[in-house]
Simulated scan of single mutants.
Amino acid sequence: MDFRELLDTILCRLVQNTLRQRKDAMLNRETLPDLDLMRRVQEGEMVSYNTLVNRYKDRLFNVLYRMLSSEDEANDLLQETFLRVWQHKMSYDFRFAFSTWIYTIALNLARNELRRRKKIKFLDIFDFADKLAAKEEKKDTSTNLKTLLESEMKRLPEKYKTAFLLRDVDNLSYEEIAQVLGVPLGTVKSRVNRARAILRTRLKPRLEESYELSKGTVLPINIL
């Protein structure tokens, strides 16, 4: 092996080792808690930042999309959310969960957009809509059912809608929602229960028809 071949071999191994180290670093970061990742982000580590982005991007997008009824706007605000996380990383307070902080950023951006629009739209959040539609005899039932669900969601007061969405769609704990919304824990539980009760009352006749239930049948709680 001549000197040139030796240099090429060394360079190749260096590149392979670098790529392997990056891959190992990413794998290690994926198992770290949010707070540990944020400490590294504050030190300027992009690998940890990207790990947090990958960990939260889908969950945040789902919330933003259902609040804004627009995929493009949801993506725009998602990018803005993560940009603000990076820009304000040094202001993060480790006394609070990272999930609370990032959801607060995202929801504030969404609220600002909704105020600008002067209207609120929520898309279908019920995964069982298509399953129910399959049991219907009419071909347009799926559309009718989804329209009904969307309509009833829109009619909910915003404070009930937001609490319901964070709890039953995105599975945040009551404690996390209380911190995100800045209201007492009991208020969060009350709002979620109120939203469920309103939707259950409004949707029960239509769901009973779909399932061919008797008027006295109690709907399973997991339906709403």
Rank of each mutant, 00 (worst) to 15 (best):
F164N: 03
L213G: 03
E5L: 12
G186M: 07
S69E: 03
R13I: 12
N54F: 06
V188I: 01
S142V: 07
Y103V: 10
T81W: 09
L68Y: 08
E152Y: 03
L224H: 05
I221Q: 14
W86I: 03
F3K: 14
K215Y: 11
T31H: 15
K189H: 08
V188F: 05
M67S: 02
K189V: 05
L83S: 15
I177Q: 04
D24G: 00
L109F: 10
Y65R: 09
A133V: 02
L219G: 01
D34T: 06
M67L: 12
L52W: 04
E208S: 11
F126A: 02
T81V: 01
L224N: 04
A178D: 05
R20D: 13
W101N: 12
H88Q: 10
E136C: 04
T217C: 07
K131T: 09
F126K: 05
S210V: 12
V15E: 14
V180F: 03
M46Q: 12
Q42A: 02
Q87G: 00
R117W: 11
E30Q: 13
N108A: 12
V218A: 12
E209M: 02
R206A: 13
L11Q: 15
L64K: 03
V192Y: 04
F126V: 10
G182Q: 10
D140F: 00
A25N: 13
A25W: 04
L19G: 03
L7F: 08
G216Y: 14
T9E: 15
K118A: 13
F122E: 02
K154T: 04
M46P: 00
R29W: 06
E73I: 10
R191C: 01
A195S: 02
A178W: 06
L60F: 09
S190P: 08
Y174Q: 01
P205Y: 07
L60W: 08
L219I: 07
K146A: 07
R191T: 03
P205E: 05
V192F: 01
E175A: 09
E136Q: 02
K215D: 13
L14F: 11
A178V: 05
K57I: 01
L166F: 09
S151A: 11
F94M: 02
D58E: 13
V218D: 10
F3M: 12
S173W: 06
E5V: 07
Y211D: 01
E208V: 01
R194F: 05
W101C: 11
R206I: 06
E137M: 03
N28Y: 12
R4I: 15
E30R: 15
D34P: 09
L68K: 06
L109K: 10
S69Y: 11
R29T: 14
E43Q: 09
Q16M: 15
N112D: 13
T201A: 14
M46H: 07
L207T: 01
L11I: 15
S99M: 11
Q42W: 02
Y174I: 04
A74L: 02
E176V: 00
D36G: 08
L165N: 04
